[in-house]
Nucleic acid binder design. Structure first.
Lengths: 333, 333
DNA sequence: GTGAAAGCGCTAACAT
DNA sequence: ATGTTAGCGCTTTCAC
């Protein structure tokens, strides 16, 4: 249970195989320039000793870490989805991820500082709350790519939030809904754009007088509160678009307890298509953010910056799309 | 936006402050042995240059990383709670966390391999699925602490799962319930012990003939399925203990949709006291795992092993406790 | 209280 | 195809 023996080094392997360190180095990295027989002997020696290269030393010497730092909110369902996809995207381009979580007890500054010391080659920040100037300051030291939040002058990958709400309202209007409300995300990243999209779409459908924006937020609790507000209404809406899926589950929960049948009495549309929405018993109609596209763009952008490739447009906007599931239907007769 | 300038090194700071590298090294680490005035000058020079020590070089030289590797399932609500607390526990002992997530596309072996290369001084694995022999193999290379799963011969920190279910059944029996069912966790870590605790407690209360174990699982979907099974019953139970909170939310959701009032018609008890259970609209009565105690023990154990401290008992068991919220009450008359 | 020198494990540049 | 040398940025002796 104790690990008393010191780890073998490259020199140990070299001695055992009877060759120089350089050869071992080449073989371990799979580079050409070593004879077939030498190759085999080195491999054997390494296996026998249980040798594992020390990435710190390796990266210190080569001057690169091939590490992308990721700052994310571990409590956010959608961030979890993004991180999952980022792992894949990074691996495809030969990079590793260094995760640094924001928790109630560990703020963004602390999470970011850790990654800077690890000599990540770039930072990918998910929906950061850090003020734009502070982000810009960090960006003078290494490339920073911001995901899911708009920040002027920085590399940003984001969803066409307003467009998403157009799609949501279009869908509901087509089903025949008129009294369509929006539970918004307050100051959360993307909330302003989604609110705007909702308003524009309502206007476009001639439903201006039915516009109703209810204060909400990012969490289940925010959704629950907003749902109570809606139910207290004399003439509650027949459909509601919600800032995100997590908030929408709070809404659904309160509706179910109040005996309001979904979608017969009221339709609900979420946003994100996070894993929450796909759960069989939730089965939420939602606006899907294109996670694979966003994460691949984010990694690609980070790598481009690392390599000094010129970038035409710092902001990339990804189209969302409607996913119809079980929480939307025609309005009650 | 490009980071053209090279990062400043310790030598740069030394030159700027007009002192030797050694002094700068001392000051940056907050070690004693430098004059007050020198200290100030060094600090200034470092700030002006925006110097950040290179952790790789630092650790390479000192032979230590002060890094604890954590392998966790990013999709699991309870793991998220544990990671959050681990950050705090590690910081209190002067360690950092290196996170490596298990995702649908990235298995435990891959997550673990990454951390081994980073020269973590110990590994903390949350509810690992890796077979015991493979874990033991890793443990020959560095200290491994397993959280939330029992593994013979390894360092384990776990909750007294059976005891937790005793408390749940006691609570329900005291309220007057007799037909108490258990939705189990299948092959999940801890599931067998919780099932056993349920059976024992039912026997202790003379409710042997009411024992009913329904197949469940870890996720919301598993809970939803199990709830349907219960509702199809001729004589459904008046109370149900569920493997974990996540699964319990699925149960609650289905019950609400079916018009079953909680707790008037049926009481529900979860397990974990994850952040899910505390949400105002869920308000789930549950068996709380003592997350601060578990994480502190885990970090303490890892640090003890790193320092070669003798450990009397490899397995530490932490007591859970009942948290009564809104989903339990007396059985229907 | 301060500085000079050695070297952590590895890769890169230059031999042979 | 193989070996030798230097040095990444830092901490650690050991002098002064």
């Amino acid at each position: 249970m104790a690990n008393t023996q010191a780890r073998p080094t490259l020199a140990d392997v070299a001695a055992r195989a009877g060759v120089s360190k350089s050869l071992v180095s080449l073989v371990m990295r799979g580079e050409p320039g070593a004879g077939t027989d030498t190759r085999r002997r080195v491999r054997e020696a390494a296996d026998e000793l249980g040798y594992q290269p020390d990435s710190r030393a390796r990266l210190l010497r080569s001057g690169r870490s091939r590490l992308l730092g990721v700052v994310f909110g571990i409590q956010h369902a959608f961030h979890v989805d993004l991180v999952t996809a980022l792992y894949t995207a990074a691996r495809d381009r030969g990079y590793e991820l260094a995760l640094s979580a924001v928790t109630p007890d560990r703020d963004e500054a602390e999470a970011t500082a850790g990654l800077l010391q690890d000599r990540c080659e770039a930072l990918i920040m998910l929906g950061p709350q850090t003020p734009a100037p502070a982000l810009a300051q960090i960006a003078t030291r290494l490339p920073v790519v911001v995901l899911a939040r708009g920040v002027r002058g920085l590399d940003v990958i984001r969803t066409a939030d307003a467009d998403g709400l157009h799609q949501a309202v279009d869908h509901l209007a087509l089903l025949g809904h008129q009294r369509i409300a929006h539970i918004d995300g307050g100051r959360a990243p993307g909330a302003a754009d989604r609110r705007r999209g909702y308003r524009e779409a309502m206007h476009a459908h001639g439903l201006r007088r039915h516009v109703q924006v209810v204060p909400g937020g990012l969490t289940e609790t925010d959704g629950a509160t907003a749902a109570h507000t809606l139910l207290d209404d004399n003439e509650p809406p027949t459909a509601v678009t919600v800032f995100n899926d997590r908030c929408a589950t709070g809404v659904l929960d309160v509706l179910a307890r109040a005996g309001a049948r979904v979608p017969d009495q009221i339709s609900v549309v979420g946003f994100d298509d996070s894993h929450l929405a796909r759960l069989a018993h939730i089965n939420l109609t939602t606006i899907a953010q294109d996670v694979p596209a966003m994460t691949e763009l984010a990694v690609a952008r980070a790598v481009d910056r690392i390599n000094g490739v010129a970038v035409a447009h710092p902001t990339s906007v990804v189209a969302p799309h409607l996913v119809v599931r079980g929480t939307t239907g025609p309005p009650p007769a």
